[in-house]
Design a protein around this nucleic acid. Structure first.
Lengths: 318, 318
DNA sequence: GCCATTTATACTCTCCGTGAGCATAAGATG
DNA sequence: CATCTTATGCTCACGGAGAGTATAAATGGC
């Protein structure tokens, strides 16, 4: 880097790169969180950034709308990668990849596109704790992690590795922290339990369940899931994923789908209502089992009232 | 964007860009939060990304260490900009700017460099509420914002604008939220109260106090301050800014310097100690007024123990 | 040496948010 | 009508956080 602030655009050939966008587009249907994928579910939608657009967000929105025929509700930048070793070949034109998180409603997606939806727990089965911790964590993942920890060169490093495993996966009676999606993925990668890791070549038997993805797309997805799980706790972004009218249980199911854990029903309702996030439509839910529920809609006014202030969901760490 | 995930590096001439890094480097000395600046304090350190480095972080660290002669404690990506209108001239080689937040210790900076430190409240005087809300907010900023709100075309829009002003600046008896740094800056920009805004040309009399910066550097700084103010509440990053040994009051003063608000001393100590973030060195502070305080050091073990879990500071929103 | 001043440090008290559980209501189904 | 399922109202106990009181330990001025 040079010190001059203004003349940063010295068009030296060594600095020319291409800019790529990668999108984590999320929707929720019937309690299943989905992401948009291409290439048979093996990659996230991505491609070169067109500088005909005014900004990155504009480019992303335009592209998604062309794909789905519907505007993107919420967009947020995730991370920018420029690692040299990323593109595979060594000294080819370098590429900067800018990843985004976008929220939309699945039911509005048009037909006839290559893109389609995949459940995000297909890629991260260990992240779904709605029915308790998945059995294979204790049965399969934990022992493999233990073996990896034991393989460390010194006893101190062995303890350190295992402590990391225990913290991120909630082992040894620790609490499960649903926000550590990326840390868990990176840990599994380091332990060579992820097919994408080069150093797990030829050892396909010893990998963990979960569908792999092209390049580092699954890592980007992990980043997106982690960001979203954190975000729903203090911003009213869940509503971007809901239909115009919904019951409180449907809302709760969506939150639980994203968080990968269950919440206390009464407390959930108390929180939603006391924050005045929703208002009754007057109508009741039809075609339902059990007592019919009131229908609610999101009070869009809260976006102006509270601006960036706060929304709370009963997902706090204990 | 195309749909193919792999062949993203079509070296079409229209997609070639240059990658720039912009850094918000923070240090705290004697209760003053400083940022590294160049060009007489009118710009953040920035320059083209050298692809000889393995990653963006590596490049940033190498550069900062060359500048300051000291390793960078904590580094975090802030945001990536690729707005077309950003570089000023229209169709020149496009540039992607990747901004970073970095924490370091000011006293370790080498001599003889162009870079030097500037107090960050020079650029954002309205952000320092340690001695209560600065008087010029009520005297100068609020009336100008009110005028701007009144200039909206419809009564509804006028109310909306004013509500936004009141929320972000804590007017009308609202609480001051120190995290809304970026929102406040953007609001002032929209209201043409910021010299950097093109539409305030020739109206220099009606701008708000605070030193301007080149291009959108002050906006990037606002992003960094906001991120840091949020971060110190749940991650032990303050310690990256502290000397090896410090008293609890010094620690508190640093937190207050960053947050721009005071905290309750006893509660602060209770929180720090019950979380076992620090340990006594055994020594006492010398050359001090009043009763001497114990010296503490950061317990680096917490980084391993809690990994990403949690650190709390008494800065919660009430 | 005494006092004012400044900082350090120990306790206490109250309020409220939150987790958790109990109880009841209102539909559908057989 | 019994049962199942979901909706909805209410209570209770615990713990964390804000705020205040009290005391200890140093300095400097007179």
């Amino acid at each position: 880097m040079a010190r001059s602030p203004q003349k940063s655009s010295t068009p030296a050939s060594g600095n020319a790169v291409t800019a790529d966008l990668v999108a984590v587009l999320v929707a929720v249907t019937d309690g299943t969180p989905d992401i948009m994928t291409i290439a048979g579910g093996s990659a996230l939608p991505s491609g070169p950034f067109e500088f005909t657009h005014r900004s990155l967000q504009t480019a992303l929105r335009a592209w998604v709308e062309a794909q789905t025929g519907h505007p993107l509700g919420y967009v947020e930048q995730l991370y920018t990668f420029a690692d040299r070793g990323r593109s595979g070949d060594a000294r080819s034109p370098h590429s900067v990849s800018i990843s985004y998180l976008g929220l939309t409603r699945e039911d509005e997606v048009g037909e006839g596109f290559e893109a389609h939806w995949s459940g995000w727990y297909d890629y991260f089965p260990w992240e779904d704790h709605r029915a308790g911790a998945p059995g294979f964590i204790a049965k399969s993942i934990a022992p493999k992690l233990k073996a990896w920890a034991k393989a460390a060169p010194s006893p101190a490093l062995q303890r350190e590795r295992w402590q990391r495993c225990a913290i991120t996966f909630g082992l040894d009676d620790r609490d499960w922290n649903e926000e550590l999606v990326l840390q868990r993925y990176e840990l599994l990668w380091e332990a060579s339990l992820i097919p994408e890791a080069n150093h797990s070549r030829g050892r396909e038997a010893s990998v963990v369940p979960g569908k792999p993805m092209t390049a580092d797309h699954r890592r980007i997805l992990a980043t997106g899931i982690a960001r979203l799980r954190a975000k729903i706790k203090y911003r009213p972004v869940v509503f971007e994923l809901m239909p115009a009218e919904f019951t409180l249980l449907q809302l709760q199911r969506s939150v639980e789908a994203l968080a990968g854990r269950l919440v206390h029903k009464q407390n959930f309702r108390r929180l939603i209502e006391q924050q005045e996030l929703v208002e009754e439509t007057g109508a009741m839910a039809a075609d339902t089992v059990g007592r019919p529920a009131k229908l609610f809609r999101f009070r869009h006014a809260v976006l102006a009232e509270r601006a960036v202030a706060g929304t709370k969901l009963p997902l706090s760490r204990t």
